[in-house]
Design a protein around this nucleic acid. Structure first.
Length: 281
DNA sequence: ACCATTTGACCGTC
DNA sequence: GACGGTCAAATGGT
């Protein structure tokens, strides 16, 4: 019953994606006809159209995969095999101030789907998957478990990398950088955070409530404005479906603590992805 | 009403 | 059968 609803949801999303592509194509057509013809706009619209098609294809493939399996337990076997086959990365993050029970923000939007006490561990393991799993077919999964030895440490295991490419970035002012305590990050295995700079991990957990208010009013900055790290100061809008309260809880996220080495802003496509709901699009 | 989280049940693997 | 991973109904927050 629920599965059926999910299928309909998938179909709606595919249709919606295709309609967006169609709308962009119409705009492209109008732009081509227009006397004040803009080449930049053409490029943007073409990217947008390609994106819509890509997303629709991803969604259809995901839908097809789920149909192949039994109505119940749709991808159980698939997931099991995935975890065995894929190299898993493990990160140990020591947080100066406790952030009990959270998924520890890493810039992606996660949704908790389970929790389990693991044999031999005092603390439960939380299971998170990417919130874009059904909308963009992103299969990224992570497991977060509080360390038994050190209550301030969380072990994070990433399984599968993100296909959604929707990481959010928020900058911090120079003053805040001076004020806030540093996150202590240690590498347990793998090389995910090898190149992590300590100053990129500054985070005031005490001050999160204040920051939430600030980021309820996300807006796009002028393209030329750059933050202290030299990144383009791009922030998602509140209308972005990926923005959750959990997401808002972090006000600075570096681009480094990720199992996949994706720089979201290296291409126009990524920028378009983040600005999905922009009114001008 | 909608959405995210919680939690017991279920399933596959060993 | 034990264990780990996931599902999905129930629950709670907004």
């Amino acid at each position: 019953m629920v599965m059926k609803e999910e299928m309909f949801m998938e179909e709606k999303l595919v249709i919606n994606e295709l309609e967006q592509g169609k709308e962009s194509a119409n705009r492209l057509m109008n732009n081509l006809k227009s006397p004040s013809y803009s080449e930049d706009l053409n490029k943007i619209l073409v990217s947008k159209i390609l994106h819509s098609y890509e997303n629709a294809i991803v969604m259809l493939n995901l839908d097809k995969e789920t149909r192949k399996r039994s109505p119940k337990r749709i991808d159980q076997s698939h997931k099991k095999r995935r975890i065995i086959d894929k190299k898993t990365e493990k990160v140990k993050v020591c947080v100066g101030t406790g952030q009990e029970g959270t998924s520890l923000d890493d810039g992606y939007c996660w949704r908790k789907y389970g929790q389990k006490y693991i044999h031999g561990s005092k603390n439960p393991r939380g299971y998170y998957r990417c919130t874009h799993r059904f909308t963009r077919g992103c299969l990224a999964v992570k497991q977060v478990q509080k360390s038994d030895e050190d209550p301030w440490c969380y072990e994070i295991r990433y399984l599968e990398s993100h296909a959604c490419n929707t990481k959010y970035y928020v900058s911090v002012s120079e003053e805040e950088r001076k004020r806030v305590p540093k996150l202590q990050v240690t590498k347990q295995s793998g090389n995910i955070i090898e190149h992590m700079k300590s100053e990129e991990l500054m985070l005031s957990l005490d001050d999160l409530e204040n920051k939430k208010e600030i980021f309820r009013t996300f807006s796009f900055s002028k393209p030329e404005t750059k933050n202290i790290y030299g990144w383009e100061n791009l922030s998602p809008t509140t209308s972005d479906s990926g923005i959750t309260n959990e997401l808002l809880s972090a006000y600075h996220v570096s681009a480094v603590n990720s199992p996949m080495d994706d720089s979201c802003f290296s291409s126009l496509e990524n920028i378009l992805d983040l600005s999905h709901d922009c009114s001008w699009m």
